[in-house]
Design a protein around this nucleic acid. Structure first.
Length: 308
DNA sequence: CGTCGACCTGGACT
DNA sequence: TAGTCCAGGTCGA
């Protein structure tokens, strides 16, 4: 059974897996893409302004996909708005349609971005896949065999030794266990936090709180990772994640952007981070987060002939 | 508060 | 083949 979802003319499926936001997309052939969302294996292709897809369960997932792709965002209006900046207008011409924001599951997003520091997009994809294959349940459709991303309870049941055995590097296993505990033990779940219209600052504050059990225990969520989660999973459009790519792009393009007196290792101090983010919010307006993605996209595709 | 180094892993490049 | 560098940072001294 093939389902259909109208996506309008400003949509390019082929660009979605390259956004570096969600790491569970796979290209199957020239037309089909495979993705696992909320335990569903979905095969998708685009035909003009319509997305066609089938699912392993056969069920219609239009509302899930509409939310995931943020089809309610006024995408054309957004790109008109940010095109007031001539430099950005050039980028819009070059990369639009394609650069969009996705709305992810908070838990999966948390884990993925815990794995992002300091890691490449390829490396993050590998980490996420290791977790799914190692802990999650298999799902298959045709010849495509994928794995559902394990829920926090499954991760806790697996335990630290097994997560450690996945060789995720750094202390990612510890941070992921901590995140699973926080979500499953929290009286107020993260999803509820979003529904309650928690502010951007509240979300970031909660995310960056060290785990309560041992108050000082690191959780692998700093400034930048918290911003990514706030933006990609909690609808906080005020978030402006500043990573190496973004900092570089801004420094290259804008003379008046705050300078980047880098740390010896190349990372930003807290103050530099907030200065840059605030500058960007002021400069780019209410759709700064889309500018953020546009710049990230440009930086990755521009500086590396084969970004993956 | 600002600064600095350590840190796992895997791919790309020499 | 082996050595080197770097990747969407975070943490703690």
């Amino acid at each position: 059974m093939i389902h259909e979802l109208p996506v309008g003319s400003s949509f390019n499926l082929a660009a979605i897996p390259k956004l570096g936001q969600d790491f569970r997309w796979r290209k199957l052939d020239d037309y089909w893409y495979s993705v696992v969302l909320s335990g569903n294996l979905i095969h998708v292709w685009q035909e003009g302004s319509v997305l066609k897809y089938k699912t392993d369960s056969g069920s219609n997932l239009n509302s899930l996909l509409s939310s995931y792709f943020r089809l309610c965002d006024p995408i054309d209006e957004i790109y008109v708005d940010i095109s007031r900046d001539a430099k950005l207008a050039n980028l819009v011409t070059k990369y639009h349609p394609g650069v969009r924001l996705l709305r992810q599951d908070p838990w999966e997003c948390m884990v993925a971005y815990i794995c992002s520091a300091p890691n490449s997009v390829r490396g993050i994809t590998t980490c996420v896949e290791k977790i799914a294959v190692g802990i999650g349940q298999p799902i298959e459709m045709g010849r495509d065999e994928r794995y559902a991303f394990p829920r926090p309870e499954e991760v806790l049941r697996a335990g630290l030794p097994r997560i450690n055995g996945l060789d995720l590097g750094l202390k990612r296993a510890n941070h992921i266990i901590a995140a699973a505990k926080r979500i499953s033990e929290c009286k107020v779940g993260f999803a509820e936090l979003a529904k309650r219209d928690a502010s951007y600052k509240e979300i970031v504050w909660v995310l960056m709180q060290k785990s309560s059990a041992s108050r000082k225990a690191a959780n692998g969520i700093g400034n930048k990772v918290a911003d990514c989660i706030a933006l990609f999973a909690f609808d906080k459009m005020e978030a402006f994640p500043v990573d190496r790519n973004i900092a570089r792009a801004l420094a290259d393009m804008y003379d008046d952007c705050p300078p980047l007196p880098k740390n010896s290792n190349g990372s930003l101090t807290d103050k530099q981070y907030t200065d840059i983010a605030n500058w960007a919010r002021n400069r780019f307006g209410k759709y700064a987060c889309y500018v953020n993605q546009l710049l990230f996209h440009k930086q990755r595709l521009g500086s590396n002939s084969n970004p993956s």
